[in-house]
Design a protein around this nucleic acid. Sequence first.
DNA 1: CCGTATTTGTCCGTATGTATG
DNA 2: ACATACATACGGACAAATACG
Lengths: 226, 226
Amino acid sequence: MNAPMPTILHLVQSNTLSGLVQSEIERSILSGELRVGERINESGLATRFGTSRGPVREALRGLQECGLVRSEKNRGVFVREISITEADQTYDVREALDELIGRRLAQSITVKQLEALHALLADMDAATAGHDIARYHALNLQFHDALVEFVGNARLSECYRRLTKELLLFRLRGLQDGGGFGVSNAEHKEIVMAIASRDPARAGATLRAHAADSRARMHKALDTGA
Amino acid sequence: MNAPMPTILHLVQSNTLSGLVQSEIERSILSGELRVGERINESGLATRFGTSRGPVREALRGLQECGLVRSEKNRGVFVREISITEADQTYDVREALDELIGRRLAQSITVKQLEALHALLADMDAATAGHDIARYHALNLQFHDALVEFVGNARLSECYRRLTKELLLFRLRGLQDGGGFGVSNAEHKEIVMAIASRDPARAGATLRAHAADSRARMHKALDTGA
DNA sequence: CCGTATTTGTCCGTATGTATG
DNA sequence: ACATACATACGGACAAATACG
């Protein structure tokens, strides 16, 4: 389990030092290593990475624009804490984008892409059977990432990933997982079927419904758990 | 009437030096002062702003994440040039978000907000009558910015503004304005009416159609102009 | 309330890589 | 192809602001 891990979402463009630092800090945040609300120490990270503070500062500025950290003048940068209201708003946007994703995929999906999706479904089934919740979680992210990627719209991917990261950050805040574990796996199959039917309206509605259900699960978990 | 000035979209978070520098560079880009594709000279900007290169570098990193510039290792950062394909993809997302905006506004719009929109419509009429294309352009941005702001969804506003900036950048590339000048003013009135009717489906469809028309105007301008 | 320590904000110097004659 | 000039990438140091005792 040393592994480079299911490095959740690594697409931080560059081979420059500050780019690498940004990837690493992002990973630290999304993995929960840096707790939400916690202040981030520039010097600490710099020494930890063996660099000077310059690249760290640039990386943090990037993450700020990315929405993963917030910054207070002369006080430092903090891991951003997403409120329930903000998560709700994020879901609002995500539903709209998910519908778009579904509509587009129904028009453009290839057999090869469908095979990839089916493979992911099988993996998720296996994870569910084995009660490997961590793996299911990673696969769930991969599944939705694949969907948006298959659309072939870079702008859409960018927006969607940003929202995904924010929701991931929100889940770290509390203890509940809006994923719903095995529950959402059935929905995933419906999604793939709807896309395979090549009916844009149906695929769009199915994906939107999945996002809505995910939101509902979040609320339910909040009511019961918190 | 006196107007808050042409400062197109200033919401660049901070009072820190690098924040100010970022705002200024962004303004320079969006105003066309820095031409698309042009390489940005760090030292040049630093001396121009009377700062060192540190804040400039941080600002550029922020603008990179923001999508306004791209960076090549050991070569520098360049003002990003949006291709027609990318603009098209951006419109795809924008249409989806515009529909969301319309649906939400139909549910939540207040009389005070409607008054503000009507005031903007009047201003745009005046600009059209006076053939003040620059002012119409600014008001057009204000109008759509007001719409998304009235939804009260920060995440949505953020995504939408990002797309708007990209499309603005695209228009700077060529010479055509996808705004359509007076043509789109009639559509703006339809939008406000649809929202005032408090029918989510109608408002959503109207706003989506407006975005689609804007995209169509862009293509038409490209076919004839370029 | 004041002094000290830590951290951030900024600046400058050096090395490395790229473009040009 | 080589050498020169220039810009970026990074590291280190100083000053200001904040937090703590």
